[in-house]
């Protein structure tokens, strides 16, 4: 077998036995208009994109579902805004009914200031949803122990945060992300906190299987341009991970030979 260079077709992301055509999973939150969202999603090359579930608004103009359908992108409902396992489970069930998918990005947050996951409620909700036949993708803290527990109880992936949602602070604890990756038997998706392309590349270099981001693109000055940057960053980071980086050294190692130098 020859060594692949950029054969991404042979290196597909697989979640719950299903191939996802891109390692960049997008969110739709924060885009100033449906047109901007459509352009950004197209530029990102994403194949899976999150939506939130909210009360119907009779005055709403345009539907995010129409945008995703038009782009041929699979929809991943989330439980954003839920503070308890009960709220998250009901929201997931309503999403399954409304959208015809048993996949859910499970989000159970502790407070509005940090939007950090509430681990107790998260585990409770994950157990109930797994038992009910959902493919559960939990948004979790960057805690290797919690990530492992979520995998053990049947989650199809684990999605540790890099830093708080929408903060753009990047990956604050790369070591924990590496620990999660080392132990995981399901895909690890770096979710939340990414600010720019180098953050996404780092996530992939650390061994994550995919990244999920929204704000970094939708609130960038040029969302479509940032979406393209993220697409390239994810691909570059993945290739670098597969290529195997050189070890870090304390001192220089010459890349040109010392023999054969001209002497004066």
């Amino acid at each position: 077998m020859t060594e692949t260079t950029d054969d991404t077709a042979a290196d597909a992301l697989v979640i719950a036995g299903e191939e996802i055509g891109s390692r960049l999973i997008m969110g739709t939150g924060g885009a100033p208009s449906m047109q901007v969202l459509r352009e950004a999603l197209t530029a990102s090359g994403t194949a899976l994109t999150t939506v939130a579930m909210r009360r119907v608004d009779p005055s709403a103009r345009g539907s995010v579902l129409d945008v995703l359908t038009g782009c041929g992108i699979r929809v991943l409902p989330n439980t954003a805004g839920c503070f308890t396992a009960g709220e998250a489970v009901l929201t997931a069930k309503m999403a399954r009914e409304a959208l015809g998918t048993n996949w859910v990005k499970l989000e159970v947050i502790a407070d509005e200031r940090t939007l950090l996951p509430d681990p107790i409620e998260l585990v409770e909700a994950a157990e109930q949803l797994v038992d009910d036949g959902f493919v559960v993708l939990p948004y979790t803290n960057d805690d290797p122990v919690l990530a492992h527990r979520l995998e053990q109880l049947g989650c199809a992936a684990v999605m540790p945060l890099g830093s708080p949602i929408g903060s753009g602070l990047g990956i604050r604890n790369p070591h924990n992300i590496e620990l999660i990756v080392e132990r995981a038997g399901v895909p690890v998706i770096l979710d939340a906190g990414l600010g720019t392309a180098s953050d996404a590349a780092l996530a992939m270099e650390l061994g994550c299987d995919a990244v999920l981001l929204a704000t970094a693109v939708t609130r960038a000055q040029s969302p479509a341009r940032m979406a393209a940057a993220m697409r390239h960053a994810v691909e570059a980071g993945r290739l670098a991970r597969l290529a195997g980086r050189i070890p870090k050294r304390r001192y220089a190692q010459a890349s040109s030979p010392f023999e054969g130098l001209a002497s004066s």
């Binding site: 969110g27 739709t28 999150t50 579930m53 995010v64 954003a80 069930k93 309503m94 929204a214």
Partner: peptide
């Protein structure tokens, strides 16, 4: 409790019932 769409017509409401009607919006 979720009411399947196929059961909407046959499910009758009572005084003080609470009904939530959700759809997908931008998010996440």
């Amino acid at each position: 409790e979720v009411v399947r769409r196929s059961a909407w017509e046959a499910t009758t409401l009572r005084e003080a019932d609470r009904l939530e009607v959700l759809t997908a919006v931008q998010g996440g």
